[in-house]
Design a binder for these strands. Structure first.
Lengths: 137, 137
DNA sequence: ATCTAAATCGTAATCATTCTTATTTAGAAT
DNA sequence: ATTCTAAATAAGAATGATTACGATTTAGAT
């Protein structure tokens, strides 16, 4: 089952409607195996939908993140999104600061330090590695 | 030697001038052992300098970060700053999402994964843990 | 006391993002 | 097929953080 069909199926089950704009957003991500800034998505969408509003793009990016179709992170003060890796398990990323491409990091440091945090209520964590991928280096 | 004197000394060596505004910014951080949003610093400064400009505050926050007097991070789309821990060695933080107070995390996960990243040019990394500290929990 | 680069002020501009209201549309119900 | 309604969108204003800039002031060296 394609990424597209799986996503649309999932949205349908929650009562969300299928729109041309949403389909196109998912298509764009399917062709970018990397983190992409919201602004770039907006620009790409404008090629196909000249009158699209910011709102539509941002609203859908957040919707799709909430549904785990996309993963989000913040780089240099801008929200970036990418297709969920769909590994099914918790993971982290190396992120190329040139092209946005990522490498999966299986190791999660939290296991090592939970005992240090007795009395603390851990809600989330962020572990990201930044640099140049072999192609950009 | 106090934090204040050490910082002023360091700035002087680089040819930066001592100003009332800079002194006050450092004072504010010395009384907050936690991450503080730039906006909060601006508000505190306005009490003492009613005509201070944003520019002065932001410029000095970045200057002081660059000089390692302050550490910076981005939380919820806002830059936050705190006095450098001054441990002298690399470290990470647990950050309370209520009060901004931090707990030092000595463990750095990078050692464990450098061998996974052959061919990658690692520039930096971010490892932060978010949640409620014992007082806020 | 003078001089000059650094710093500040005051304000405008920028940039990402969010909000609001009116209109359109997907898809369910008739 | 037509109607209906909640969901989605468009258009553009508003917000909030941050940066930029010209004019003025000031720290501190000479």
């Amino acid at each position: 089952m394609s990424v597209m069909n799986r996503a649309l199926q999932q949205l349908k089950e929650k009562g969300y409607k299928k729109t041309k704009q949403r389909e196109r957003i998912i298509e764009i991500f399917a062709s970018h195996d990397q983190y992409v800034p919201a602004k770039k998505i907006l620009q790409d969408m404008q090629k196909e939908f000249p009158n699209i509003s910011f709102d539509t793009v941002y609203r859908n990016l957040y919707l799709l993140s909430g549904e785990n179709v996309l993963e989000a992170t913040e780089l240099e003060g801008e929200k970036h999104f990418r297709l969920s890796c769909g590994t099914g398990h918790h993971h982290h990323h190396f992120i190329c600061t040139d092209c946005g491409k990522t490498k999966l990091i299986e190791f999660c440091p939290m296991e090592k330090i939970n005992e240090d945090l007795k009395g603390y209520d851990v809600e989330s964590h962020k572990f990201e590695i930044y640099g140049k991928c072999p192609l950009c280096a």
